[in-house]
Design a binder for these strands. Structure first.
Lengths: 230, 230
DNA sequence: TTACTTTGTGTCATAATAACGCAAAGAAGA
DNA sequence: TCTTCTTTGCGTTATTATGACACAAAGTAA
């Protein structure tokens, strides 16, 4: 067996979570107010250490459950942050993830480690402890580019939703305004391809299920290919 | 101080490297033949454990230097692989990276941990140890999507290169064929925007520096927006 | 010189996108 | 109910991006 393996002393491994919530036409992030040092009373992203037998997904879910009281959400790995001084307590590598939820479906509660848990609208996010400001910005960036090619936004809406609601979400995340009619065409074209397998010929041509935008459609994730107009 | 921090026992942290090299119009990956268990005599990606005071970049460079004898390359973080059983020796999380080099510029040598180091053309890559086959495929996928929007390919070419050489590289990485004249237009349009800040009007309109494709142009990374034709 | 390959430049047809018109359906107030 | 205002659905048109392809000039090899 490889001797390198046993003598090895390694940095700690943690995850941090950027939880996005969409509520009343505005996008927010979930932040914790810390009870302990470092950054006592400062705002940070929820996070925690990886236990021996956990997967990254499992840690993320554990943190959400114990610290915030929600579970089972859309989750994507973002990036590993490794700056040597990022945590004043010692060397910690953090593998950041971002998550999307609909705040109305959950009652958030401050876990025992936090004074407070709060949703902050994106333009009112304070300076964060550790390197969490950078993590937050990168997560937002990733979400923006992701939503342009994949329909991740559905996690943030209700079970069923209208075209207008979907558009509002896109405009909010991308921070642009989109022509209502062009957006509609994009979605219908994409959904048509998903549902029938072929391209939509002529605008009137549509699939009976197309206007429901219900659970079925949400579970079949389709390529949106919305392009950012400016 | 947070008691959670001190009592914490964590998985090991490693990096694995997918090193792409482009040589004689064909793309290859660098693989090691293992001297030690597990997977004795099997092929794997080069990798290593993260030391206490290293950044991820530094580990990657150390591995390249000691195991293969090359250094200082284009490096990008790919993904953290966390399957509990991915390493038979114990729990190891690996943060995979991929790198691009021009093999002609380096003499690769097997370090003391390996029987052999070899370039494998992409279509001749054997089954790899650990979960490295999956890592390799994901790295290739990422490289493909990256090259469509960013000019990463320059790292794989010589100091100066022709439009034809650049196109060959793109065709090779993306595994498609591209019309020579359309490719040229794309590159010239993008480069024009980079050099002048405005859009090219009319095909003849070009910038005096445009034909050099030299160091200057390489350092100013520009958006290519090549789209994959079938 | 000739034949052949490579490179530079352009055109044209098609597809994707942005911008916008208009009418029907619903909501709100008198 | 009638009017006004807003929302929603469906379309057209102009512009831009893309894919396919023609041709000539420059270079290379005999």
């Amino acid at each position: 067996m490889n001797p390198e393996f046993h003598t090895y002393k390694n940095p700690s491994l943690a995850v941090d979570l950027v939880v996005f919530g969409y509520h009343r036409q505005s996008l927010s992030v979930l932040l914790l107010n810390r009870k302990d040092a470092p950054f006592i009373d400062g705002w940070t992203l929820p996070g925690g250490f990886l236990q021996m037998e956990e997967t990254l997904q499992q840690v993320c879910n554990r943190i959400m459950r114990t610290k915030i009281g929600i579970d089972n959400l859309y989750l994507e790995q973002l990036y590993a942050f490794d700056a040597p001084q990022r945590d004043p307590r010692g060397r910690v590598i953090s593998i950041a993830h971002y998550a999307l939820i609909n705040p109305e479906r959950f009652e958030i509660v401050a876990g025992k480690m936090a004074n407070d848990v709060k949703w902050f609208p994106l333009n009112q996010v304070p300076e964060l402890g550790f390197d969490h400001t950078e993590i937050f910005h990168q997560a937002l960036q990733r979400l923006k580019s992701k939503i342009l090619s994949h329909p991740v936004g559905f996690e943030l809406l209700d079970e069923t939703f209208t075209m207008t609601e979907l558009q509002a979400l896109y405009e909010c995340i991308l921070d642009i305004s989109i022509d209502r009619r062009n957006f509609r065409r994009k979605i219908l074209d994409s959904a048509y391809i998903l549902l029938t397998g072929s391209k939509r010929e002529g605008l009137k041509n549509r699939h009976p299920d197309l206007y429901k935008f219900n659970k079925d459609l949400k579970e079949n994730r389709f390529q949106l290919n919305i392009s950012a107009q400016q």
